[in-house]
Design a protein around this nucleic acid. Structure first.
Length: 589
RNA sequence: GCUGGUGUAGCACAGUCGGUAGUGCAGCUGAUUCGUAAUCAGCAGGUCGUGUGUUCGAGUCACAUCACCAGCUCCA
């Protein structure tokens, strides 16, 4: 941890050096903030100027000078009024705002290096000469204080390390990460593509991508079936009336694709569904329910539509139409804890099955009491739902962070987060407790004592949205997906054209055994065919030449380049039997 | 939506000062029948993202628009 703090101090100091360089070169910029981040640092500037690549070079050169000057970095504190006077004199309105927002009694400190002074809590290194390895990376926009209502500032991202070697290694790792980027690799390997005429956030799943998603879907649906889930298939759109009941019309209208004029009450108006909840509730509402029916676990491979803002879309990670392993569990208050645990257990099994178990983190997403218009329900209801979730999470011994203001509008969430190859985090899976929507829809059950009661609802996914999961799988495995979900598991490579007939025979037999097999029948050299198969990250290559035909064998090679030698067809099937089959938890209920 | 960047053949790229579009790989055809990362020869492939404008003339300049990328904001 000490190392971590040292690195942050170094980077924070580097950010001051960068700000000083910017001030020297462009005196009219005003300073906002410049913190260290997990991988580097940035500084936000207010200026009309657009920083160009050449500007970045100039700034870096100026930073070099400041480092060479080896200026001592001095800390001093000022009382509030003097601090305000100082930043006003410096002409730094953002700093003024920061000081005004500091709580009463807080120490107001500044750091000075040469002619440059910055409001800052510190800590910092003692001399600018200590910052030896840094690199400016990019210029982007960022709202002042992270609010889109505020002015957009210019942010320069950079990074710094203790040594030049570490910096070089980091930059190298960034380049490597780019090679795994699903948005590049997924297109190269033909998992998906996009097309201008279809539109933003609407990727085309090519045959390989479609196959992987189908395999994942089957895997999830089969596992859920064994765990007592009831399959539903509900419409992709509904009249606005449905969303009025659920609250989506009031809280989520901007996120929906509306068919018709939402303001014309005389004419019918539909919307594509952004969530499955209100549809699946209708299954529960199909007839009167008793406590004997509960819990009811509904599952659906559900396609959803969300009208994301134009800048939000990203490859397969953020799209406007996606398909999710959606489900709702309707249960009694007494069953809630067990059902919640069952959801967590299912998710943990799913994560382990696809190999994500060490890559995920848990986030307990709570509401923000300061932002009431975003949520429905009363303070008491939120306290109750969040209290229950907290108790369950602590009971399970789950390590989680807390996200204030990250809840759904109807209830708190347990979000399972995963970072992409560039370290950007997204929610993969979510489990939510909801006590608000059942009464809105008139959902109730008759209890033992004959009274009508309002059930609890768990909203949950197993594997999350398939597009996003596919993206993270491609990145995690650099395109070399595990055998059981590989769109093409085996490629047969005939060594000469004489062997093509046999190759097709073998392919037919392997397909009959359930494997996904293709034959490379081109008249190319074997090395060439192997190279192609390896670039496509296929799990297995089977070579068939005159020798193999004579012996009745296949020469097996793995995608790692390992030569496993001659196998009979039966031996090969035995070899891959386990890894070719989707995992099963063995849980049933 | 906002800030910035990018858009030339399926992919990676070149295209000078505005003068009418090229290379490599992939593809196709033919030859080769090959044993573990690239056989040889030939052919074809482009409204230069789209539109409008400036110009005798636009891949190149201007404006608009669409898509993609990075980041912000927002979310699975």
């Amino acid at each position: 941890m000490e190392n971590y703090d040292e690195l942050r101090t170094l980077r924070h100091t580097a950010s001051h050096i960068m700000a000083q360089a910017v001030k020297r070169l462009f005196p009219d910029v005003r300073l906002a903030i410049g913190p260290a981040t997990d991988n580097g640092f940035y500084y936000d500037f207010d200026t009309e100027r657009t920083f160009t690549a050449e500007d970045l070079e100039k700034i870096e050169a100026e930073m070099k000078k400041i480092v060479k000057e080896n200026l001592p970095i001095k800390r001093f504190e000022l009382p509030r009024d003097e601090a305000l006077a100082l930043v006003r004199e410096m002409g730094e309105p953002y700093k003024e705002e920061l000081i005004n927002d500091l709580p009463e009694g807080e120490v107001i400190s500044f750091y000075q290096q040469g002619e440059f002074t910055d409001l800052c809590a510190g800590p910092h290194l003692r001399y600018t000469g200590s910052v030896k390895a840094y690199k400016l990376l990019s210029v982007t926009g960022a709202y002042w204080r992270g609010s889109e209502k505020n002015k957009m500032l210019k942010r320069i991202y950079a990074t710094a390390f203790k040594t030049k070697d570490e910096l070089a290694a980091h930059l190298e790792a960034l380049e490597e990460a780019k090679k795994r980027d699903h948005n590049k690799l997924g297109r190269e390997l033909e998992y998906f593509t996009t097309v201008d005429v279809i539109g933003q956030g609407l990727p085309i799943l090519l045959p390989k991508g479609a196959r992987v998603i189908q395999l994942l879907q089957r895997f999830v649906e089969d596992e859920e079936e064994r765990r007592g889930y009831l399959l539903t298939k509900t419409p992709l759109m509904a009249k606005r009336d449905l969303y009025r009941i659920s609250g989506h019309w009031d809280h989520y209208l901007d996120g929906m694709f509306v068919l018709g004029d939402p303001n014309d009450e005389e004419k019918e108006c539909f919307a594509l569904r952004p969530m499955t909840c209100p549809f699946q509730y209708q299954v529960f509402l199909n007839r009167a329910r008793s406590y004997r029916d509960l819990p009811m676990r509904f599952g659906e491979t559900s396609t959803l539509f969300r009208n994301e803002e134009s800048g939000e879309m990203h490859g397969l990670i953020r799209v406007r139409q996606f398909t999710i392993s959606e489900g709702h569990i309707v249960c009694t208050p007494e069953q809630l804890e067990d059902e919640f645990k069952g959801c967590v257990e299912l998710v943990q099994f799913m994560m382990k099955s696809v190999g994500f178990e060490n890559d995920i983190t848990f986030r307990f997403s709570k509401w923000d009491p300061e932002n009431r218009e975003k949520y429905i329900g009363t303070e008491e209801q939120w306290a109750e739902a969040e209290g229950m979730m907290e108790k369950i999470l602590d009971g399970l011994g789950i390590n989680y962070s807390v996200g204030v203001g990250e809840a759904a509008f109807y209830g708190p969430k347990l979000d399972i987060q995963m970072k992409n190859v560039f370290g950007k985090e997204d929610t993969l899976v979510t489990i939510q407790i909801d006590q608000m929507l059942a009464p809105k829809f008139g959902m109730e059950y008759t209890d033992r004592d004959g009274t009508k009661k309002s059930p609890y609802i768990l909203h949950r996914t197993s594997l999350g949205c398939y597009e996003r999961t596919l993206a993270l799988l491609i990145e995690k495995y650099a395109g070399a997906l595990p055998m059981w979900m590989a769109p093409e598991q085996v490629r047969i490579l005939p060594i000469t054209d004489r062997c093509i007939d046999r190759a097709y025979e073998v392919a037919t037999e392997l397909r009959a055994a359930g494997l996904r097999v293709e034959v490379d029948s081109r008249s190319e050299k074997i090395g060439y065919k192997i190279r192609e198969a390896q670039m496509q990250k296929l799990p297995y290559m089977l070579m068939i030449g005159d020798k193999e035909i004579a012996e009745g064998t296949l020469s097996v090679r793995t995608r790692g380049g390992q030569d496993l030698g001659a196998h009979t067809l039966e031996q090969f099937l035995e070899l891959v039997k386990t890894e070719a089959a989707p995992p099963r938890s063995g849980v049933s209920r």
